[in-house]
Structures are given as structure tokens and as C-alpha cells.
Write a protein that binds this DNA or RNA. Structure first.
Lengths: 154, 154
DNA sequence: TATTGTTATACTCTATAACTATA
DNA sequence: TATAGTTATAGAGTATAACAATA
């Protein structure tokens, strides 16, 4: 058999191997790849999941989704269009601001969300298997500070 | 003034706010955005930096770069083409395998790398400012395991 | 006047297939 | 036969500008 492409870097990572941002990006890419893989048979991508998941647990407008998920507003439009066509979410006009559209999951969307969430949680077991319980706790405490920096936007 | 788009999520993150992979992706995106911002005046992106940085500290072929950076081989071709045109790297044929091209930084490339590295290190000071010394150490110990999983490729 | 969502459009990034030269 | 690099091309993702409705 041929060696894993990841085996070599593991022994000699070079300068980037000490760059925390590079590793955050790569770790995220690994996780996203696994997520897309496991969601594919549901016809979803992690991007879709991020919309449904947020809409299912928070009242949120498209503008807020764009900020939260670091997407362009026009991207949110087409993502929500697609999810709406598939009957997973619907748009409702905000009672406080008739310009804003609140994205709400349908009953079907809730089911899909629950299943997708379950599948993704299983991938986490694998992804974070190398970490001790304490390391996982530390990571969960650290990440929000890096993912949502207090100082202004990105 | 208007509130930061990141202020709201900070108070109520919804379900994704507890998803470690989502936060890895977002933290990486925040870091990359800051990196691109600070490298822009050098005419570089973090993608270019990742090539130069690795070539400057390791003997590496284009194929290995593709695996290490999770890029398509054809992407590496055009990235290296561009860097070579700008006189920052050159290609040399591997003495062990005449198919393989080793990417080597030029003297100019070394200088650019050193300056870029300095600039990026400064952004890290800001990005990781919220973390204690111990948290930073833990993070640096954890990340390689997530970024370079032992089990096969992505 | 400014903002949300929308549309159209351009731009960048990524993936696929076919080719060459080497192995 | 298989692999590294290359090329051409298609597809997916992202960014920009203009507009209508609303604030």
C-alpha cells in the first residue's frame, strides 16, 4: 500500500507546523470534509447544515446569518432559496422590521436537522478521539474566543 | 454607531455555538482574513505564504505540497507558476525522481518569507491575546492532532 | 439617508479529465 | 502500469454593484 499523504507532514511539518492559524484552518478543513462526507447521503453540505442548525435554535434573520456564518448576504439568499425549495425552511417577515426575513425550519427541516446533527456528532467522536477529556474541555472553552473575537468584525 | 455583527452571536450562539468543528472553521477563517489583510500590502495571500513558508523550511515537492496544504495538484501548479514569475521561488527537478519538482525559495523569496512571517506573528499576538499562556500551550499541543489526523487522508 | 433582501454579474477557488515524461 | 506535473475546462464558492421595499 502507499503511505497516507498525511503521514509525511506528521514527521516534519516545517515552519507552518508551528503556525496556530494554519492548523486551525487545516483542522477545520478536515472536520468540514468529514462532515460533508457524512451529510452527502442526505443531500446536504455543512454549509446547509449551518443554516438549518442556527435557524432551528435561534430566531435569526438572513442578515444575522450572513454575519454569524461569515457569508455574503447574497450567498444566504441562494442557500435559503435552495432550502426553501426543498421544504426544509421557510421565510417569515420580522414583525419588528418588515425588511428583515426570519428563517424558520419546517417540521421536515427539524427532522433533517436532528438526523444531521446526530451524524455530525458521531464524526466528532472520531475527530476528537486523540484528545483527553480535559483537552476537549479546554478546547471548547478556548474556541469561542478565537471564533468570535470581541474586537470588531473580520 | 452600529453594533458589531459579531456582538450578537457572542451572547446567543445557538446550536452551532457548541459545535467544535464549526468553531475551528470560523476561527481559521478569522485568522486567515487577518492574515490576508496584513499580507495584502506585500501582494501576497496566506495561500502564497503557505507555499513559500513550507518550501523555505523543508525540502518538498509539489505533490507533497498539495497533500500538506490540502490543495489540488493543479492548484499548486498555478500558485507556484505565479510565485516563480515573481521571482520568489524556483523549481528544481528531484535527483531521486525526475518526475518530481522540488520548490525552492530564491534569495528574494527568503526575504519576503521572513517579513511575511514577522507580520503574521504580530497578528497572532492579537488573535490569541484572550488566551492565557497555559491555554496557548494546550492549544498548540492539541491542534496538530486535529489538523493531521493519524487515520488516512481527508 | 441607511439598511434588508434580491438579482445579475464577475471573480476566485476547487475539481476533473486528458496528456507527457518519467518510474 | 502507475505517478508527478501540466493544461484546459467546468463547477462551486465568493464578492460587487444596483435596485425595491422599508426604516
Amino acid at each position: 500500500m502507499t503511505a497516507s499523504p498525511l503521514a509525511t507532514p506528521r514527521t516534519d511539518l516545517g515552519q507552518l507546523g508551528t503556525d496556530p492559524v494554519f492548523m486551525l484552518i487545516r483542522a477545520g478543513a478536515v472536520g468540514r470534509a468529514r462532515g460533508n462526507e457524512v451529510l452527502r447521503k442526505m443531500g446536504l453540505k455543512t454549509r446547509d447544515y449551518s443554516i438549518i442548525s442556527t435557524a432551528a435554535t435561534r430566531e435569526i434573520t438572513q442578515k444575522e446569518l450572513a454575519d454569524f456564518l461569515m457569508l455574503n448576504p447574497s450567498q444566504v439568499v441562494s442557500l435559503v432559496d435552495d432550502l426553501e425549495t426543498r421544504g426544509l425552511v421557510k421565510r417569515t417577515t420580522s414583525p419588528h422590521d418588515r425588511r428583515a426575513k426570519i428563517v424558520v425550519p419546517t417540521a421536515k427541516g427539524e427532522k433533517v436537522f436532528a438526523e444531521a446533527r446526530e451524524r455530525l456528532t458521531q464524526t466528532h467522536e472520531v475527530l476528537f478521539a486523540p484528545l483527553s477529556t480535559q483537552e476537549r474541555e479546554t478546547l471548547l472553552r478556548i474556541l469561542p474566543q478565537l471564533a468570535f473575537p470581541a474586537d470588531l468584525a473580520v
